[in-house]
Design a protein around this nucleic acid. Structure first.
Lengths: 413, 413
DNA sequence: TGTCTTATGGAAAGCGCTTACCAGATGGGA
DNA sequence: TCCCATCTGGTAAGCGCTTTCCATAAGACA
C-alpha cells in the first residue's frame, strides 16, 4: 500500500481522505496535526470496515445531522437548552446510525466533573472489604457514578499511591477503608498519605474514611469519617461475655499498631475490667485467617496444658475480627479441641458468609454494606444542603452471642 | 461579597484577577471563556487558601520553571525526548512546589490511551467474583492500569449498561465474569449486550470473558475467552463420586438457562451415565446460598422420607457451585440431618474461604484468581507479539474429594 | 409598522495535555 | 570558512467535548 507521509502540506488530490487514527486501537486519535491519511481509492474497499474503527465523535454526528456540534451536544448530553424537537430527532438519529458514544474523558475535561469515585481497600477478596465495596458500589450506582478500585495490602505507601492515582484521574471522591497503621515503620508513609489526602481535599476532593480519621488530614468539610465504635462495642462484648464466662480471657489481635485491632483490644480489656475480671493476655498475629490459625495453634497448646475439667480455667478467646476467629477455630479443631466445648470463641464484624459456619460464631455485628454506602454518600456532593458536616449517622453495631461462646452445661471432660 | 458578572469585557481594574473555577470542586475549570473572576481586594485574604483550590496545571508548572509546556511535559511525563538535566531539574522542582498532579483525563484525551480496564461481575461480595476481581486487580497493577468496577446482579441489561459506560470512559479492555444467561426473557438484552460488546471490539477495545463466549460477538483478535471446562470437570466429579456412592444423585442447579450451571449439570449427568448410573434429578433454584438453602429444605424432606438405613437410598447432592452447596448444608443441618452421615454433598469452585467449613466440602477446584489474571492479561495489548489468538493457556480445574462425600462406614441409623 | 424581548442555532474559546514541526544553536567535515 | 547533520526548546494544533456569547429569527406589544 502506498501511503504518503502525512502532513497538511500534502495537497488533497482525488484520493479520498480517510480517518486513520492510531492504528485501530480504541481510544483513537492521532497527533499528526492533521489526522487524515491519504489512501488510494483501490485500497479503499479493503478498509471500508475500518472506517468505523475510530469511535465516532460528536462533530461527526453533528455533521451527519446537519447541525453544529453545539446543538448536537445539547440534544445528546442534557443541557439547559433544548433544541427544537425536529432537530433533536435528527441528531438522535444520526447518533444512532453512527453508534455514537460520548467520550467521557473529553466530557470530564470540558465539564470538569468525572463522575468517578475511588475506593481503596486492603484486599478485595476479604469478605469484610468486599461487603463494604458492595455498599460503595450500590451508592455509586445510585448517584450514577463509577467506582475505581485500588487494593493496597494495607500498606500506607500503596494507599498513598492509590490516592495520587485517583487524584490524577480527578475522582470526585475517595473512599478509603481498612485499618490505619500506627506502627513506627509506617509513620513516614502515613505522613505522606495524609499529605496527599490533604492536598486532594484542598483541591476540592471529597474523602470518606471508614474507621479512624487519618492522622494529619485537616478536618474540612470534604472530609467525612464513618466512625465505627470499635472500642465501645468490644467493651460491650467483653461485658456480656464476662457475664457467663468465668475462666481467663485471651485476645488474638492483629499486629500492634493496627488501629482497628488496637481499639478493639482496648475496649475489650476495659469491658473485662468493668466486669471485675482481670485483663486478658494479648497475642499479636497477622490480621487475617492465617494469623488466627497460628495463634490458635499456640492456644491449643495452652488449653491442653490446663486442667480441662476446671470451668475456671476454661479459656475464652476473642479474636479482633471474624476472619481471625475462623483461623483460631480451624487450629483448635486441628488440634482436636472443640468450640465451645473446650474453649469459647468470639470474633468481630459479623461477616455475612459466616452465618453457616458452625459452631455459630459470637461476634459483633457491623453493617458493612451500609458503612460502604454511608462513606460514599457522605463523601458526596449530594450531602450538602442542611446537613451537619460531622460524622453523619454514626454506625451502630450489635453484640451477637451465639453458640461459640456458650458455656457447656457440665464441667468439661 | 460583591462579585461582578464574569466576562472578558469587564476591564481589569486594580482588583486582582483570581482563579475561580466551578465552585471549589476538584476537577476545576470553568467555561467562562475567561475563567478569571474578579474579587475585591479586601475579600482576598479570606480566599487566600482557595487559590490553591484549583489543581495546578502543566502550564503553571512550565511558567514557574520558565520553560514551555512542551518541555515541562517532556520531563514530567516521560517522552522520547529528554530535556537538559538542568532544565529538567528546574521543572521537577516547580512541579513539586506546586504539587502538580497530571490530569489523567487530559492525558488520555491527548494520548488516546486511558490505562483503564473495566471489570464486570455479578456481585462483588460473592467470594467467587471477589476472587476473580483480586486476580484482575493484580494483573492491572502489574500493567500499571486502573480497574473500573461494575456490578450487575447478573442481568444482561445491566451488563450492557456497564459495557456502554466503560466504552464511554474509553476503557482499553473489559473483563466480564459471571455466567451468561440463555433464558428467553434475557434474549433481547443478551443481543444488545453482544451488539455493544461487538461495537466495543470493533472500536479496538479488548474484551476478556470468563466462561462461555458471549453469543453474537464476532470472534476477533481483541476478543479473548478464558474457557472453564465446566462440563468436563463436572463429568470427572460425577465419575469419581459414582465410584463410591451407590445411592441416587440429585443436582441442585441454578436457574435453567444459566450457562455455567447448565454446563455443569450436563457434565455431571454425562459422568453418571459414563459410570452406568441413572441420571440425577435436577432441582432449579437461584444460583446463590439461599437458593441452595431452599433446595436443601426440600431435599431434607425427601431424605427423611426415604429408608435412611439403606445405603442404596442414600442421596448424593451436587450443587453447581460452592455457595449453593453451603446453603444446602445449612438447610440439612437445620433439619437435623448431617453431612456426610445422612447424605453426601459436593459443590463446585473451591471457594477459598470454605476451607474452614466443616464437613470439608468436596468440590472442583478452579484457580479463580488466576482466571481473573488471565482474562486481564489476555485482553491486554501486551499479549500481541507471537501468541496464538485463541483461548490462551486453558484453565484447568481439579476434583477435590473431601469429607462431605465420604460414605459412612456402616449403614446409617 | 416599528421596537423590544425572547427563543434558538452556531461560532469559537477553552478544558489540560501531547507531539509534529520549526527555528536556532552547535559541532564536524570538507 | 562554509555547509550540513544533529540536537534542543518552543510553537501551535489538536484530542472531543461544553458553554458563553453572538446573530438571527420570531413573537409581543404599542
Amino acid at each position: 500500500m502506498e501511503s504518503n507521509e502525512v502532513g497538511k502540506r500534502i495537497p488533497t488530490s482525488f484520493m479520498m481522505t480517510r480517518s486513520y487514527a492510531s492504528g485501530n486501537r480504541f481510544p483513537a486519535g492521532s497527533h499528526d496535526c492533521n489526522n487524515r491519511m491519504l489512501l488510494k481509492v483501490p485500497e479503499l474497499e479493503a478498509f471500508e470496515e475500518e472506517l468505523s474503527v475510530t469511535a465516532s465523535t460528536l462533530s461527526e454526528v453533528a455533521k451527519l445531522a446537519g447541525v453544529s456540534p453545539a446543538t448536537a451536544s445539547r440534544v445528546l448530553n442534557g443541557s439547559t437548552r433544548t433544541p427544537a424537537p425536529e432537530i433533536a430527532e435528527r441528531v438522535r438519529q444520526a447518533a444512532d446510525t453512527l453508534g455514537y458514544i460520548a467520550n467521557a474523558q473529553a466530557q470530564a475535561l470540558a465539564k470538569s466533573s468525572t463522575g468517578l469515585i475511588g475506593l481503596i481497600v486492603h484486599d478485595i477478596a476479604d469478605p469484610y472489604f468486599s461487603a463494604i465495596a458492595q455498599g460503595v458500589q450500590a451508592a455509586a450506582r445510585q448517584e450514577r457514578r463509577m467506582v475505581l478500585l485500588a487494593t493496597t495490602n494495607g500498606t500506607p505507601a500503596e494507599e498513598k499511591d492509590a490516592v495520587v492515582a485517583f487524584a490524577a484521574r480527578r475522582a470526585e471522591s475517595i473512599v478509603i477503608a481498612g485499618s490505619r497503621s500506627t506502627r513506627s515503620e509506617d509513620a513516614h508513609a502515613n505522613t505522606e498519605l495524609a499529605a496527599e489526602l490533604d492536598r486532594y481535599c484542598r483541591n476540592g476532593g471529597q474523602v470518606g474514611v471508614v474507621g479512624k480519621p487519618i492522622l494529619g488530614v485537616a478536618e474540612t468539610d470534604n472530609y467525612c469519617t464513618i466512625t465505627v465504635p470499635n472500642e465501645q462495642l468490644a467493651r460491650d462484648l467483653a461485658q456480656e461475655l464476662a457475664h457467663t464466662h468465668k475462666g481467663p480471657f485471651v485476645i488474638v489481635a492483629g499486629p500492634e499498631g493496627l488501629a482497628t485491632s488496637d481499639e478493639r483490644v482496648v475496649g475489650f480489656q476495659r469491658g473485662l475490667s468493668d466486669a471485675g475480671q482481670p485483663a486478658a493476655d494479648v497475642v499479636h498475629v497477622p490480621f487475617n485467617r492465617n494469623g488466627g490459625f497460628d495463634a490458635g495453634i499456640e492456644l491449643a497448646w495452652r488449653i491442653k496444658a490446663s486442667d480441662q475439667s476446671a470451668l475456671e480455667q476454661r479459656l475464652c478467646i476473642f479474636a479482633t475480627n471474624d476472619v481471625m476467629a475462623i483461623g483460631v477455630a480451624a487450629a483448635l479443631r486441628d488440634r482436636g479441641l472443640r468450640v465451645p466445648h473446650d474453649a469459647s470463641l468470639a470474633g468481630f464484624d459479623d461477616i455475612e458468609w459466616l452465618r453457616d459456619f458452625r459452631p455459630a460464631l459470637s461476634t459483633v455485628h457491623l453493617p458493612l454494606e451500609e458503612i460502604g454506602r454511608l462513606a460514599t454518600l457522605g463523601s458526596s456532593n449530594e450531602r450538602k444542603a442542611g446537613e451537619e458536616p460531622g460524622p453523619l449517622s454514626p454506625v451502630t453495631g450489635k453484640v451477637m452471642l451465639r453458640r461459640s461462646t456458650e458455656t457447656p452445661h457440665s464441667a468439661r471432660g
